[in-house]
Simulated scan of single mutants.
Amino acid sequence: MTIKLTWQVSALALLALGGAAIAQGNGAARATPKQAQAHIDRAMTLAGKTYMHTTAGLQCGLSGPAMSRFANAAVPEPTELFDNFYYVGVSSVGAYAIKTRDGIILIDALNTSEDGVNVIEAGLKKFGLNPADVKYIVVTHGHGDHFGAAGYFALKYGTHVMMSAADWDLVAKPPMRPAGAPPARFSPPPARDLDARDGMVLSLGGQDIRIVETPGHTPGTISLLVPVTVHGQQHLLAMWGGTGVPRDADMRAKYIASSERFAAISEKAGADVELSNHPFVDDSLTRMDDLRTHPRGANPFVIGRGAYAKYAGIITECAKAVAEGGPTAN
């Protein structure tokens, strides 16, 4: 079964880095306010060489349009990132499959139903996994590049789809596309199913996923804490659910508060792995190449608790830079 319908969404939905990719092309360059520059400087210090040209550069608005260089990029090879944890996404946006003894949990679902067939299903089959075993799809936020194939899986396999109540409301009434914004074509949202709530733990076959509400990028963005193992050794993965600082001042304030709260929760929980739901944000594509080349070596996604705390700090500092009139702000 393949759904052929399409759905128009806003440029903010297409450009997962929100204003960063759009504002760079608006008018002449202007001086960065002193307070904003202080936050950018702190972000760059936290970034070091590891994240300077990816997370910090993109989020602080220093790297130009974020999506364009990935628009025609080849689909990356499906990759086992951790034990029974697989990347089955594209170059611009991720989908992650977790195998459990009772089925599969999928985190995010790319852009379209066709992606569901050609990328997600094909990736699962490469690892000997049956797409019919996908029991849940956890959607980090209600933009079309994250829920795209969820309706396809729900209709074909009876997969349950989980999203926050606020973002179920968001996808039910998609915003109009701004004048002059590039076209965005995604498959329609799935029928409303399960509500993700703050503090909820989704459990399947011995695998837990802890949900933390982090509104800002959208009204109901959720971020995730996921225990993973590498060659049997336990680690904790933290996934920030909505990359891209919003232009609206109230939403931006929520984004900053959410980033600080999630940093505190994830650091207290012992997160030592970060994983973006957009692989170019944290150089995941390069790390996947390294992992495929050296599958028994040190896992490049395990960065340690100290490095994770710095990564989380970059997100907050860049958002504060935008709030102070930094380069991603209009």
Rank of each mutant, 00 (worst) to 15 (best):
M1E: 00
M1W: 00
T2G: 00
T6K: 12
W7Q: 15
S10V: 11
L12M: 14
L14Y: 13
A16L: 11
G18P: 06
G19Y: 00
G19L: 08
G19Q: 00
G27T: 12
A28K: 10
Q35Y: 03
Q35D: 11
H39F: 12
H39G: 04
D41V: 11
D41L: 01
M44N: 14
T45A: 14
T45C: 02
T55H: 06
A56L: 04
L58Q: 00
G64H: 09
P65N: 07
M67P: 00
A71P: 13
A73C: 00
A74Y: 14
E77T: 15
T79G: 09
E80V: 05
N84G: 02
F85L: 02
Y86M: 01
Y86T: 03
G89Y: 01
V90Q: 10
V90C: 02
G94H: 12
Y96N: 03
D102N: 10
L110S: 08
N111Y: 10
D115C: 09
V117S: 07
V119S: 02
E121A: 15
G123M: 06
A132L: 04
D133H: 05
D133A: 04
K135V: 09
V138R: 08
V138T: 10
H141S: 07
H146D: 08
G148R: 07
Y152N: 02
F153D: 03
A154E: 11
A154K: 15
A154R: 12
L155C: 02
L155V: 13
K156C: 03
K156L: 08
V161R: 11
M163T: 04
A166L: 01
D169P: 02
V171P: 13
A172D: 07
P178D: 03
A181R: 01
F186G: 06
P190R: 11
D193C: 07
D193T: 12
A196K: 01
M200L: 02
M200G: 05
L202S: 06
L202H: 04
G205N: 11
I209D: 05
I209F: 01
E213S: 15
P215Q: 04
T218L: 14
T218G: 15
T221L: 05
T221Q: 11
I222M: 07
P227T: 07
Q233G: 07
Q233C: 05
W240D: 08
G242P: 01
R252I: 01
I256L: 11
S259I: 10
S259R: 06
F262Q: 05
A263D: 03
E267G: 03
N277G: 15
N277L: 15
H278V: 15
H278F: 15
P279C: 06
V281W: 09
V281P: 08
D283S: 01
M288Q: 15
L291Q: 09
T293K: 13
H294W: 14
G297T: 15
A298T: 14
G304L: 03
R305E: 10
R305D: 00
R305G: 12
E317Q: 03
E317T: 06
A323M: 09
G325N: 12
G325F: 12
G326W: 00
A329P: 02
A329R: 04
N330K: 09
